[in-house]
Design a protein around this nucleic acid. Structure first.
Length: 718
DNA sequence: CCTTCCTTCCTCTAGACAGCATGTC
DNA sequence: CTAGAGGAAGGAAGG
C-alpha cells in the first residue's frame, strides 16, 4: 500500500525518513478515517500491533504544524522505553524530546521549551497542580494504556488527571490507547473521541487450556494436543514443550514464592533434558548478577537458576537484576522466565508461549483467592508471540480436568473483556483531587466544581446520583481540617496548608497526621525521635504496608517499647490505626537502612527483598521531605531541619556523618563508609586526596579514585 | 546409624505512581 | 459454600 494514498504528504515523508514504508491495520484505520490530521480517537487494538505508531502519526502531524505534545504512560519503565525510541526519531526532525517522571528528568530546562514530553499520569497531575502556562499551548496528548483507569488504587488519579487536562485545555487533541477495553464506546464518549477497534495482531495468538489430568491442551481454534509428561509438573512440561521446539516461554505464577520455586523446577528440567543453549553466556550472566547486584538471598537464588538457562522475575528483585533478566531473555540467553504479573504490565518482552499457572490468585480485598479478570489474562496473553521469530503466539492456562479446561476457554479465549469502570467514587481519593482542583482555581465557585465533575468518567458512567454526594462530604473534610476556607463572596479558597499539601502531592490525611505529629516532636527524647518519626511515616496513607510474619511478633513488640508515638492511636481513624504494628515494622526496616545495615541483613531479618526495600525508602524519602516542608510551613525550624536531613539520609541509607561524602556522584552508602573509615570525612578531604591512597581502599580502583576527586573538587567550587 | 522419601501441618499471599533542589554546627 | 502451594518438621522406610 502506498502511504501517500492515506496520509498527508509531510507525514508520509516523515515515516519514509524513519524507514517505515508500510502501515499495519490499526495505523491504516487511523489514516483512512483522517485521524492523522485531526480529531480525537480511542484506539483499541492488541499488544504490539502498532498502536504507538498510530498515535505518533497524529503527533508528528501536529508537531510539524508547530504543536506541542504530551505522551502519558502509567509506568516509569514504559516512559523510559518510549523516550529511548522517540528521542532519536523526533530529534532528527529537530524536535526536542524530554522525559519527566518522579525520579528522573532528562532536562533541567523549563518543560515549556520542549516539543514532546513523555511522562506518567501522576507526574502530569503534579505538573498540572503547579498550573504552568504551557498547558494552554498543548495541542496533542496521548493517553497510553488507558485501561489503568480501572485500577482501584491509581485509577482515580488517572481519571482526574485526564479530566483536569481536558478542562484546562478543552481544545487539546486526545488520543487514547489500550489493548484491553471492554467498553470502547463509553470511554470514547468520555473523551469525546472516535472509537477505533482493530483486532489485527502482528503474530496471531491462539489460546489454550491444558487439562493436565488427561495431559491434553484444548485449543480455542478447536485443536487438541497431547503433551509429553516429562516431569509431571504441568507448567514445566509446557515450558519444555516450547523450549524443545526452539522457543522461549514466560510462565506467570500467582506469588513470588511460587515463581522462585517454579524457576528452579524449570532450570532442573532444562538440565536434565539436554536442551542446548549458550551455557557460557548464562554463566557469565549469573556472575555479573552476583557481582553487580546487592548481595542477598534472592539474588543468590536467581544466579543459581540463571546458570541453567532460566530465571524468575518479580518486584522483590533489584531494578538492575530485572533489567539484566529482561535483556538476556531478549537475546535468547534465557529460555524461560517464571514471573509474577510484573512482566504483564511492564516493558515489552514477548515470548512464543505464555503459560498461566493459575487463573486464580489470592485477593487481599476479598481475603481469599479469586479468578483473575479477562483483562488481566489478556495483558499476560499479550506477551505471546515474538514478531519476526514466532509464527504464532500461544497463551496456555492450566486446568485440572477437561471440563475445567473447556470452562476456562469460554471465559478467557473470547473477547468479552470487562468494561473499564471509574473508581473515583472512593471518598478518600475524591477529596484529594477535589483539593487539587480548588487549589488550582482558588477562589472558586462551588458550582464550578460541580460542573467540573461532569467531565469525569464516573459521571459519564453512573450519572448525577453517583457524584452528587461526593462534593459536599469532601468539602466538609477539607474545610474542617484547614485545607480550604469559604470567602465572603461565597467562594472557596485554598489555605497555604492546602496549597502546599497539594503541591507536595501527599494525601490530605498524611498532611494532617504530619501537622499533628509535629506538635509532639519537641517532647520526644532524642534517642526515641528517629524511630518515632519513622513510625509516623509508616502510618501515613501514602506509605507502603509491610507484612508482618508470625515469627516476628516478639521483635515488633520490642521495637514498640522503644518508640514514643507522635500520634496517640486512640485519636486516629480506625483505617489508619489498624496499621499500627505494620508501621512499627516499617519503622524498624527504615531504621536499619538509615543505620547502614546491609541489604542482605535486612532481607534476612525482615523478609524485605532488595526491590521492596528500594520502593520503601524511595517513598519514605519523598514523605520525609514533605514532612519537613509541612514543618517549615508551621514555622518549626528545628523539626524541619531534622526531617530534611532524615530525607537526605533516607535517599542513600546512611548515618548523618556520611552525607557530605554521598553527595559525590559515584559514592553510595558502601563506598562512603569505606572512605570515612579510611579517614576521608569531608568533601575537602576528598578533593585534596592523593589518588594512590584512595585506591588502597577496597572497592575503589584507579578510575574511580580520580573521578571521586574530580567530582569532589567540582562540588566544592559550587 | 545415617540418608532419603513421604506425610502433615503451618504460613502466607502482585505491583508501584508521587517532591525538590542541596548541605554543616 | 469457596484457596492453594511452598516449606519446615517429623516420621517411616531403606541402606
Amino acid at each position: 500500500m502506498d502511504l501517500r494514498e492515506l496520509l498527508p504528504e509531510h507525514v508520509a515523508e516523515v515515516l519514509n525518513k524513519w524507514g517505515i514504508t508500510r502501515l499495519f491495520p490499526p495505523q491504516e484505520e487511523v489514516a483512512k478515517r483522517g485521524l492523522v490530521t485531526s480529531g480525537n480517537f480511542v484506539l483499541a487494538s492488541p499488544t504490539a500491533s502498532g498502536k504507538t505508531l498510530a498515535a505518533e502519526m497524529a503527533m508528528v502531524n501536529d508537531l510539524l504544524k508547530g504543536g506541542k505534545a504530551v505522551y502519558v504512560v502509567p509506568l516509569r519503565a514504559i516512559a523510559s522505553e518510549k523516550y529511548n525510541s522517540f528521542k532519536g526519531r523526533y530529534g532528527s526532525l529537530g524536535f526536542s524530546v524530554r522525559v519527566s517522571v518522579g525520579d528522573y528528568d532528562s532536562s533541567e530546562e523549563p518543560l515549556g521549551r520542549h516539543d514532546l514530553i513523555i511522562t506518567t499520569y501522576e507526574k502530569l497531575d503534579s505538573i498540572l497542580r503547579h498550573g504552568p502556562s504551557w498547558i494552554s499551548a498543548l495541542t496533542t496528548v496521548v493517553f497510553d494504556e488507558i485501561h489503568f483507569v480501572h485500577d482501584a488504587e491509581r485509577g482515580p488519579t488517572i481519571e482526574m488527571t485526564i479530566a483536569k487536562l481536558m478542562d484546562a485545555n478543552p481544545s487539546v487533541r486526545r488520543i487514547a490507547l489500550s489493548a484491553t477495553i471492554g467498553n470502547l464506546e463509553e470511554i470514547s464518549s468520555w473523551l469525546e473521541a472516535e472509537p477505533v477497534a482493530v483486532g489485527w495482531r502482528p503474530v496471531p495468538l491462539r489460546v489454550g487450556a491444558y487439562a493436565y489430568g488427561v495431559g491434553r491442551i484444548l485449543w480455542s481454534d478447536g485443536g487438541d494436543e497431547k503433551i509429553h509428561k516429562a516431569t509431571g509438573i504441568p507448567e514445566v512440561d509446557l515450558a519444555l514443550r516450547t523450549i524443545a521446539s526452539g522457543g522461549q516461554a514466560i510462565v506467570f505464577y500467582p506469588t513470588r514464592r511460587s515463581a522462585v520455586a517454579g524457576a528452579s523446577k524449570i532450570a532442573r528440567a532444562i538440565s536434565s533434558t539436554l536442551v542446548r543453549f549458550d551455557r557460557e553466556a548464562a554463566q557469565s550472566l549469573a556472575e555479573s548478577i552476583l557481582k553487580e547486584e546487592p548481595q542477598s538471598r534472592v539474588i543468590e537464588r536467581l544466579a543459581e537458576v540463571v546458570r541453567r538457562g532460566a530465571a524468575f522475575h518479580h518486584a522483590g528483585l533489584s531494578h538492575g537484576a530485572r533489567v539484566k533478566i529482561e535483556e538476556a531473555f531478549r537475546r535468547g540467553i534465557l529460555l524461560a522466565i517464571a514471573a509474577t504479573p510484573t512482566l504483564a504490565a511492564g516493558v515489552n518482552l514477548p515470548a512464543r508461549t505464555v503459560i498461566i499457572k493459575s487463573h486464580k490468585r489470592y485477593d487481599r480485598t476479598k481475603g481469599r483467592s479469586a479468578p483473575i479478570s479477562v483483562m488481566e489474562f489478556h495483558q499476560m496473553a499479550g506477551r505471546a508471540g515474538r514478531p519476526g521469530f514466532d509464527e504464532i503466539g500461544e497463551a496456555i492456562v492450566l486446568a485440572s480436568s477437561r471440563r475445567e479446561a473447556e470452562e476456562l476457554l469460554t471465559i478467557y479465549a473470547a473477547d468479552n473483556l470487562e468494561p473499564i469502570t471509574s473508581k473515583l467514587d472512593d471518598p478518600s481519593k475524591f477529596r484529594t483531587h477535589l483539593l487539587s482542583l480548588i487549589v488550582l482555581r482558588s477562589p472558586v465557585k462551588p458550582s464550578d466544581l460541580a460542573d467540573f465533575v461532569k467531565k469525569t468518567l464516573l459521571y459519564i458512567e453512573r450519572g448525577e446520583h453517583a457524584v452528587s454526594g461526593l462534593i459536599p462530604s469532601s468539602l466538609d473534610f477539607l474545610i474542617r481540617e484547614g485545607f480550604v476556607e469559604s470567602t465572603s463572596g461565597g467562594r472557596l479558597a485554598a489555605t497555604r496548608f492546602g496549597v502546599r499539601t497539594s503541591q507536595l502531592y501527599i494525601d490530605p490525611v498524611s498532611a494532617v497526621m504530619m501537622a499533628r505529629g509535629l506538635e509532639r516532636m519537641p517532647s520526644v527524647g532524642e534517642g526515641e525521635l528517629e524511630i518515632s518519626v519513622l513510625h509516623l511515616i509508616g502510618l501515613l496513607p501514602d506509605m507502603y504496608r509491610v507484612a508482618i510474619r508470625a515469627r516476628e511478633s516478639e521483635r515488633i513488640e520490642e521495637i514498640l517499647e522503644e518508640l514514643e508515638p507522635l500520634l496517640p492511636p486512640e485519636e486516629l481513624p480506625i483505617e489508619i490505626a489498624v496499621n499500627w504494628f505494620s508501621a512499627v515494622k516499617m519503622a524498624a526496616v527504615l531504621r536499619a537502612w538509615l543505620n547502614e545495615a546491609p541489604e542482605a541483613l535486612i532481607e534476612e531479618t525482615y523478609g524485605v527483598e532488595p526491590g521492596d526495600l528500594r520502593s520503601f525508602t524511595e517513598v519514605a524519602t519523598w514523605l520525609s521531605y514533605a514532612f519537613s516542608e509541612i514543618a517549615r510551613l508551621f514555622g518549626k525550624v528545628r523539626e524541619a531541619r531534622y526531617l530534611r536531613q532524615l530525607s537526605a539520609r533516607m535517599k542513600v541509607g546512611v548515618k548523618p556523618e556520611l552525607l557530605q561524602l554521598t553527595a559525590v556522584p559515584g559514592v553510595g552508602r558502601r563506598r562512603a563508609r569505606a572512605l570515612y573509615e579510611a579517614g576521608y570525612r569531608t568533601l575537602s578531604d576528598l578533593a585534596s586526596a592523593d589518588p594512590k591512597r584512595l585506591q588502597r581502599i577496597p572497592g575503589i580502583g584507579s578510575k574511580l579514585a580520580e573521578n571521586i576527586i574530580r567530582e569532589a573538587k567540582a562540588l566544592l567550587e559550587r
